[in-house]
């Protein structure tokens, strides 16, 4: 699914990722843990193609394609989804019309007709109920004035609608209370499948108690200093990163 080799990435003049190598197979769940500033979010944004993250050298192959050669839109349409740590507000655009537009963009890419309004509403109701999102939220403007929890749920909702092959969750647990965390984790667990891979970027153990990773990687200074199974996360939680 994803093959990262000797990746070096800078933001402005600062080198953040240092010869990072990581391989993720289809169906696997990987957690990336690390202290603040270790480069965890950088890997998430680099994979999604954020232009502020400059790839100096190295390669990333995504389902056999050269990911670094693809525009952000193309990466999305080909099944890469990044759940943002800080979802962006788009004033004046209702969440419902935004969601429908991004869904239709993906449908178009798959050669399908746009979803009609009634069918979309049905789909939206179903998915929202699962995440305990009130329908009223969809008539508000995208992420505008949303609480931290609403924003994160809205990210997971988009993830669910777009049915991606590779999900990258950037600190999705931050800003969620226990109940919201559980609902969100349940929804993500439902999405786990042998055809889909997950990268969970997080500072804490708590999300990983709900979504069990197959592998845990500890980031320090832009590279992986230790990898292991889920027990590594528990150890870090007890002992800290130092």
């Amino acid at each position: 699914m994803l093959e990262i080799k000797k990746l070096n990435v800078s933001v402005e003049e600062n080198k953040i990722l240092n010869d990072l190598t990581l391989s993720i197979k289809t169906g696997e769940v990987h957690a990336i843990m690390g202290p603040n500033g270790s480069g965890k979010s950088t890997i998430a944004h680099t994979l999604a193609g954020n232009p502020n993250y400059r790839v100096e050298s190295g390669s990333i192959s995504f389902n056999g394609s050269d990911l670094l050669d693809m525009e952000p839109t193309e990466r999305s349409l080909d099944g890469l989804f990044l759940a943002f740590q800080y979802p962006i507000e788009i004033p004046g655009v209702t969440n419902a019309s935004y969601l429908r537009q991004i869904l239709n963009s993906h449908r178009k890419h798959q050669g399908k007709d746009p979803i009609d309004a009634a069918e979309f509403l049905k789909l939206l109701k179903e998915k929202s109920a699962y995440l305990k999102i009130p329908m009223e939220m969809h008539s508000r403007f995208v992420n505008t004035g949303f609480s931290g929890g609403e924003k994160k749920k809205n990210e997971v909702l988009q993830m669910d609608l777009l049915d991606p092959k590779l999900i990258i969750m950037d600190e999705t647990d931050s800003g969620l209370d226990v109940d919201a965390l559980k609902v969100t984790a349940d929804a993500v667990n439902q999405m786990k499948s042998k055809n889909r891979s997950l990268i969970i970027v997080t500072h804490y153990l708590r999300l990983l108690e709900y979504i069990k990773p197959d592998f845990v990687h500890i980031f320090q200074n832009g590279k992986i200093i230790e990898s292991g199974d889920s027990s590594l996360a528990s150890r870090i939680d007890k002992e800290g990163y130092e």
């Binding site: 232009p51 839109t73 999305s76 989804f81 990044l82 962006i88 507000e89 991004i102 963009s105 993906h106």
Partner: peptide
Amino acid sequence: SEEQLFYCLQRGLN
């Protein structure tokens, strides 16, 4: 903002 644009691109809009 670049953030707004990138957010939408990440969701598959051109």
